[in-house]
Amino acid sequence: MTVLIATDLDRTMIYSAGALAEGSSPAGTVCVEHLDGQPLSFMSSRAAELLRALTRTAVVLPTTTRTVEQFRRIDLPGAPWRYAVTSNGGTVLVDGEPDRAWRDGVDRAVRDSAASLADVGSELDRLGEPDWILKRRTADDLFCYLVVDTAAMPSSFVRDWGHWCAERGWNVSQQGRKVYAMPDAVCKSRAVAEVRARLIADGVLPDTAPVLAAGDGALDAEMLRAADAAVRPRHGELEALGWECPGLTVTAAAGATAAEEILRWFANRIPTGVAT
């Protein structure tokens, strides 16, 4: 193996039924996640084939803001995974189990640099229960997010909430109906760098192995910027922001077929190649 590929999942590789309706429609889909027996997330059939093929020639690292429990619901083509990153970098899974030492280090970094989750929760309590907040969730005792009615949410909320959080070592981003509050110390790029170091130490990757990355949201931005080369779909939060960085490619396609384009982009940058 010569390349480490870190890829976001939701709206980069996999798509909800609603997200499937956005952008170009794939020729066929496969369900990759169920919740309470109901289909929840999908990939294009071709993207599933390409991802499975990619794992034969590169180290693919699923890298998601989902919690451990939410990640475990996904039947992602190419599994089983030696490593996966969940909780926005707060958790490194090794053969499906959380690495305790990594999480302890993340917790220390948050304590040393940011307000506590309880403090952030207390500030959210001051909002009361406005109709535009549909749900409020805490994820893996690391960060929190709101599920909102985007049409009813005050236009200044994300900006004002972001200012409050920024002064306390947290950042705020909106991805669709979810508004995240995340400690700055919890980020995907640090976890990706840790996995790369372990793979080099184990002899799986050479010490010259580049990192390629893909993602669509603001929480992916630092991972894309830290990678040797990166790609994002022509949809999502980063597209809405017009976000760019050196070494970034933007797909021509929007919607679920963008995943196929991303996977071909990865394959074309692996020395051994992958059939497309």
Rank of each mutant, 00 (worst) to 15 (best):
R198P: 03
A152G: 13
D202H: 03
G215Q: 14
G255E: 09
F266Y: 05
V94R: 01
L9N: 08
I200E: 10
M1L: 14
S113K: 12
S122K: 11
T91F: 06
A193P: 03
E49L: 12
F42L: 09
S156Y: 10
K135L: 15
A48R: 06
I74G: 00
V92H: 04
A252H: 09
R234A: 15
A214V: 06
G217A: 15
R234G: 11
P246K: 02
S45N: 02
T2V: 12
A19R: 03
A118Q: 15
R137W: 01
Y15V: 06
S189Q: 11
R111M: 09
A115T: 01
T65M: 11
D125R: 14
V3A: 07
L35M: 06
P77F: 06
A27S: 15
A267D: 06
L205F: 10
G37L: 08
A166P: 07
Q70A: 14
R108I: 02
S173P: 00
A101K: 01
L35N: 04
C31A: 13
L146Y: 11
L248S: 03
P210S: 09
I74L: 01
D160N: 15
D140R: 08
P62A: 07
G105L: 00
V186K: 15
D202C: 01
V32Y: 02
R168T: 10
T272Q: 06
L4Y: 08
P271D: 14
A259G: 13
I270A: 05
A240C: 03
K188F: 02
V147Y: 13
V110T: 00
E123I: 06
P130H: 04
A214M: 00
R198N: 04
D99H: 09
G169K: 14
R234D: 15
K188N: 02
H235Q: 07
Y83P: 04
F143S: 13
T208Y: 00
R198K: 05
P26V: 11
T276N: 02
L76H: 08
R111Y: 00
R100C: 00
A201V: 09
T91P: 05
G217V: 08
T57W: 02
K135C: 10
M43Y: 12
L124S: 03
P271N: 10
G105Y: 01
P98Q: 09
R46L: 13
A254L: 07
R111F: 03
V172M: 05
A267I: 10
A218Y: 14
W102F: 07
P210A: 09
H163P: 01
S156R: 12
A209W: 00
D140V: 13
S113G: 15
Y180V: 09
P130Y: 07
W102C: 00
L20F: 11
L219I: 12
T208E: 03
T251W: 01
S44W: 10
D131Q: 15
P210C: 09
D10I: 10
R234V: 10
S44H: 11
V85H: 11
V158K: 02
G255H: 09
C165N: 02
D202L: 03
A84F: 02
I200H: 06
L76R: 03
A191Q: 14
R73H: 15
A166N: 11
L54V: 02
